[in-house]
Design a protein around this nucleic acid. Structure first.
Lengths: 252, 252
DNA sequence: TCTGGATCAGTTGTATACAACTGCCGAACT
DNA sequence: AGTTCGGCAGTTGTATACAACTGATCCAGA
């Protein structure tokens, strides 16, 4: 009997701690847990089906990720984000990515990696050229966009910077992909994609040409495109529904 | 018997989890745990005197803080930092503090806070003017310098940015105070203090005058002073002994 | 009626027992 | 002799029992 029966494997192959982390983060992002109110460990235990130990692990991690805040008398509560918080988070992400681009330009990036990114950008061009925007093609765009951004960080080659950006991007509405799906239901979606893609090209060109300051400046402006998306999305509940973690954003 | 006997209170008033966190961080910074090698939970338990539960909490937190890295097969190891890592961490901190200064300048800071910072800077001026550098006066300088930097972050008024900077500064050698003590045993200590203090003045002036870009640029250059200190300290074991967490920095 | 205090349910914090896993050593077999 | 398999020690991961604490409710007394 070498083949054990593992019907739960696809869900249970990961440790209970990981399971708890993913499940709890899911609950938070979905808005099942109201911001501000205390999270009862036991209620999570019975919802997720693991014991308190991994749940507590997940709580600590999610506090570090920024989704929870510790309550002085013990325990945790879901954090509420103001609109200003979200704009600041985006600006901060832009500044950090800007540093990544500048470092890549100043220090020089390996040729093969640059070619690889160039290929990714060509893919995006082809996608945009097709002129029809479907949910599927948009998801594809989101993926390509996300990989451009992670490639960019990779180019900088700095572990410390990577760590900081990972933290900034942990909040989904601060990530480069946060507002792209929201963009899809907006009237000028195609126009925004064209602008964003041109910025991608400029960023890469600046890095290739070793123009550190230019690379940094364009990346920052690129992040502000996300801020503009947010501003527009805030007036459209259809868009907001496409934003992960929108439930955590408290309206003024 | 309302008065319980609490002789251990000064050490035990904090929870076991906090105790474990502080003690373990202390062990790491002191270099008692060799970078790269696995940390045995039980060995920590008997060194610190709390059970495994709070120790594991501390391990998770210290991983988030950046001192530890998870081992694929389970457990954690102390992270080793290259000299490049340290320089990058300083540059990253400078960029984030630069954002704080720019936001403060662009958005405007409340008058009373600005006056308060001005007073702190006056204190530093008086300290420098005394011309004699003793360990005590240097520690005083370190305190004043640290509070200037935290005031700066406060001026920006951004929770998100605060979070990111706190993370960047968690690594002691990336913090604004990291290399100041090392500076104290260097020949041109007085000169560096004068330069740093002039930068402090310029930063505040830029914020008052709403010169966002200038504030950002000077703060970045100010951080690079720390990088210069590091470069000098790396050649002097006397200096290195004054740098917290120096044991984690692997020489090339 | 209002205030004070004490009890109590429900919570989180801690310790510990147990299970599962990893890497290693040795022995046996090829 | 080399290789592979099996068992073992020691580790981490998980569950759970227990302790300490918090906040609230209820009752008694002024």
């Amino acid at each position: 009997m070498t083949a054990r029966v593992v019907p739960l494997c696809d869900r249970a192959s990961k440790s209970q701690a990981v399971k708890a982390l993913l499940a709890l983060r899911g609950l938070i992002l979905a808005g099942d847990l109201r911001p501000g109110e205390r999270i009862s460990e036991l209620s999570i235990v019975e919802r997720i089906g693991v014991s308190r130990t991994p749940v507590r692990h997940a709580l600590v991690r999610l506090e570090e990720e920024g989704f929870l805040e510790a309550i002085p008398s013990g325990g945790f509560a879901v954090k509420a984000f103001s609109e200003d918080d979200v704009f600041d988070a985006i600006e901060t992400r832009g500044v950090l990515e800007g540093l990544a681009a500048r470092l890549a330009a100043e220090r020089g990036a390996p040729e093969p990696k640059l070619r690889c990114i160039q290929d990714h950008l060509d893919d995006i061009d082809r996608l945009i050229a097709r002129a029809e925007i479907t949910p599927t093609s948009f998801e594809h765009y989101v993926r390509l966009n996300a990989s451009f951004h992670s490639d960019l960080i990779d180019l900088a080659g700095s572990r410390q910077l990577l760590r900081q950006i990972e933290r900034a991007v942990a909040l989904p509405f601060a990530s480069p992909s946060g507002f792209v799906m929201a963009q899809s239901v907006m009237p000028d979606a195609a126009r925004l994609m064209i602008i964003a893609q041109d910025q991608h090209r400029c960023i890469l060109e600046a890095i290739v040409n070793r123009q550190g300051e230019r690379a940094e400046a364009v990346v920052r402006e690129h992040a502000r495109l996300a801020a503009r998306n947010l501003k527009a999305a805030l007036n459209s509940s259809t868009s907001m529904q496409l934003i992960p973690g929108a439930a955590l954003i408290a309206r003024r």
